[in-house]
Computed example of a mutant assay.
Amino acid sequence: MNLHETPGDMSISPYFLDLRSAYQSEMDDLRFDSEGRDVLQQRLAGKRQEIAFLVQMMDISPEMVAVVFHRGFEFTGRAVMEHLLTHDEDVFPAWSSLAGGFELAPWAQDLADIVLESPGGDKFLAVTAGLEYMASLPVAAGVIISDEDEDEDEDSDQDGADDLVILEDDGEGEDGGDARTRQEAGADWLVQQGFDHKD
């Protein structure tokens, strides 16, 4: 099965499900400092200043770069965005074709202009739009449904059928661990560039 069905007739490809998990982990890593203070906005502001450098990581760890666009999208076209989320990595719509799905904040448009100057920038921005769209929805994340539990869970979800529930695999399937591998590769790359290794 290539697509994960969600209540409300929304389908999300395994590619986006995998990246969403990695994106959420990246946001969690950025949110708090060693003393437990919420420093997300300061850290994102710092990353945005480094966008010209970070674009080198778009292919290796897109989720580590996508976070700089956090809250930079105002979504206006649900159908456009939901169609985007059905795509897998090898077939992606052009960035320009998504124009009816959102508006970018001025600061985010400035970042997008820099990204578009790099090879692969068009696809990366489409991926980022999908990640931000998922992050903006009321989701019940991390729900794991096995074949035998599916009927029971569908019954329990009927009251909230209008909410998006993202179904993620348990990390044991053939795609399991992809998000972890991507994060490790990104962390190793940063160390090679002289940054401290993230715990």
Rank of each mutant, 00 (worst) to 15 (best):
M1T: 11
E5P: 15
P7T: 10
G8V: 03
D9M: 07
S11Y: 06
S11D: 07
I12A: 00
S13W: 03
P14I: 06
Y15M: 05
F16S: 05
L17K: 10
L17M: 11
D18Y: 00
Y23S: 05
Q24W: 06
M27K: 15
M27C: 13
G36K: 05
R37A: 13
R37V: 12
V39N: 07
L40W: 00
Q42A: 14
L44Q: 04
I51R: 01
A52W: 00
L54F: 02
V55F: 00
V55T: 10
Q56K: 15
M58Y: 02
M58C: 02
D59P: 13
V67D: 02
E74Q: 10
V80F: 03
E89F: 04
P93Q: 03
W95A: 00
W95M: 12
S96Y: 00
S97R: 10
L98P: 01
L98M: 02
A99L: 08
G100W: 01
A105N: 08
W107G: 05
W107Q: 15
L111M: 12
A112C: 01
I114C: 08
E117W: 00
S118D: 06
G120N: 00
D122G: 06
V127T: 12
V127E: 05
T128M: 04
G130A: 05
L131E: 00
A135P: 12
V143C: 07
I145K: 13
D147W: 00
E148T: 09
D149I: 08
E154H: 09
D155E: 10
Q158E: 11
L164M: 12
D169Q: 13
E174R: 15
D175G: 15
D178H: 09
T181R: 15
T181A: 15
R182V: 03
R182Q: 14
A187L: 07
L190S: 12
F195L: 06
D196Q: 14
